[in-house]
Amino acid sequence: MFGSLSEEVEVKVAVDEAWQVYGTMKFADIAAEVILERLDVIEGDGGVGTIIKVTFKPGSEISYYKEKFTIIDNEKRVKEAEIIEGGYLDIGFTLYRVRIEVKDNTNDNTRSSCLVKITIEYELKEEAAANASLVTIEPYVVLMKFANEHLLSSN
C-alpha cells in the first residue's frame, strides 16, 4: 500500500533565505528545540548520506528513528530523507520518506516570499495497512511554523 500527504505554506522571506533553514541541519535543530527529546548526528556533516537519530519525548507513539538524507539539491531546493531504522519501519512500513521543497512564489512579484512544501511518501505491507492512519503531516506543519518564525525573527 502506497500513500502520500503534503502541505504547502507561504513564508514571508526570499526563497534563498528559506532554503538556508530548510535545506540544512538548521531545520533539524529547530525540531530538536521544539518537539524532540534529542537529535544526534550519527554520521555525516549535514549533506547527502548524513544519518541522524531522532528521539521523541516520552509518551510519543514512536520512540525513535534514524533517517538518512538521500537528496539535497541546492539548485532545485529539494531535500529528501528516508527512515532507515526504527519508527515506522518497526510497524510494517517499508518506506517512509519526507521531501522538502522551497519554491519561488509566482504570485509575489517582489520576490519577498516563497512557498515551502513538505511531502510524506510511504509504503507499507498489506497486513499493516491499518497503520497508515498513524501517518500525519501535523508535526511538520508545527515545525514549519517554528522555522518560519525563526526566519522572520532573523530578518
Score class of each variant (00 low, 15 high):
residue 111 R to G: 15
residue 106 T to Y: 07
residue 103 K to W: 11
residue 137 I to L: 14
residue 103 K to F: 10
residue 137 I to S: 13
residue 141 V to E: 15
residue 88 Y to H: 10
residue 111 R to D: 14
residue 94 T to S: 06
residue 105 N to A: 09
residue 119 T to H: 15
residue 132 A to C: 06
residue 90 D to N: 07
residue 107 N to S: 09
residue 89 L to T: 10
residue 126 E to Y: 03
residue 124 L to I: 04
residue 126 E to G: 12
residue 144 M to N: 04
residue 102 V to H: 02
residue 129 A to S: 10
residue 91 I to C: 10
residue 118 I to M: 09
residue 109 N to G: 09
residue 101 E to I: 02
residue 142 V to Y: 05
residue 101 E to H: 10
residue 87 G to H: 03
residue 96 Y to C: 09
residue 134 L to E: 02
residue 130 A to W: 00
residue 143 L to Y: 11
residue 131 N to Y: 01
residue 145 K to C: 08
residue 115 L to C: 13
residue 125 K to I: 12
residue 108 D to M: 05
residue 111 R to N: 11
residue 100 I to E: 00
residue 132 A to N: 00
residue 110 T to S: 14
residue 97 R to P: 07
residue 146 F to M: 01
residue 125 K to Q: 10
residue 106 T to N: 07
residue 94 T to H: 04
residue 130 A to N: 14
residue 135 V to C: 03
residue 89 L to C: 12
residue 93 F to N: 01
residue 124 L to D: 02
residue 125 K to P: 13
residue 138 E to A: 12
residue 124 L to C: 11
residue 140 Y to T: 01
residue 107 N to G: 11
residue 87 G to M: 00
residue 85 E to K: 00
residue 93 F to A: 01
residue 126 E to H: 07
residue 98 V to C: 08
residue 91 I to N: 05
residue 135 V to A: 03
residue 96 Y to D: 03
residue 88 Y to M: 09
residue 128 A to P: 12
